[in-house]
Simulated scan of single mutants.
Amino acid sequence: MSLKQARTPRFLSALAIAGCLALGMPIATLAQGLPGLTIFSGVDRENLLGYRLDFDGRPGSRDRYRLRIPARKMDTAVSQFAITYPDTYRGEFDEDDIEIRISGDSIPLDEVTWDRENRVIEIYPVTPIPADTRVEIVFSNVRNPTNGGTHYFNALVQTPGDVPLLRYVGTWIVNIGSQ
């Protein structure tokens, strides 16, 4: 391979990124259901949460969302998870097919409620999840919205105890149909 051939892919990649930056367009990619590079999202980097869409986030199709919260974000025990989503998201969730997994194992849930009007899903485990635990919230049998696009899902948690206030943990920037 000549030196010129070796430099061509790097040059084209640099040119594409520079073009997006010059035009002020946000870069968001989706690679096989995983979040890609996100620039200019409006969410601080330390608040971005990882996720995976098992069936590639095709608009209008069924999917499984794996929303992850790292152990470092779980600084206290959690008795409730609340996941909010924007009014631009027109997908459908299956309340009976939502679970919380710790170390790959599903834990028992007391209740799952989907408040469509306020765009929030509340999940109550039977027993509080200990601090410093990596959590995966799995939404199976989701009907992706037909409009696709980028949707910001926010994770809020409530700790067991006296003050029943939800605390922001982070944001999943979910891309539907952005392949």
Rank of each mutant, 00 (worst) to 15 (best):
R101F: 03
K73H: 13
T88G: 13
V112R: 09
D97V: 01
V78R: 05
L49H: 02
T76F: 09
S61H: 12
R58Q: 10
V112G: 11
E99I: 02
T88S: 14
E95W: 01
I102K: 07
D56N: 13
F55S: 12
S103F: 09
L53T: 03
Y89I: 01
R101Y: 05
S103P: 01
G91Q: 13
L48C: 07
R64I: 14
I83N: 05
R90D: 06
E111H: 12
A71G: 08
M74C: 11
Y65R: 06
G50Y: 02
D54N: 11
Y85S: 08
Q80W: 03
P86C: 05
Y85P: 10
M74T: 13
D63T: 07
F81L: 15
P59F: 06
L67V: 08
D56A: 09
S61P: 00
L49Q: 03
R68H: 06
G60A: 03
R66S: 15
V78L: 12
V78I: 15
Y89A: 00
R68P: 00
R58C: 01
I107M: 09
G42A: 10
L49S: 03
G50P: 00
L109P: 12
D110G: 13
D54K: 10
L48M: 09
R68E: 14
F55D: 11
G50F: 01
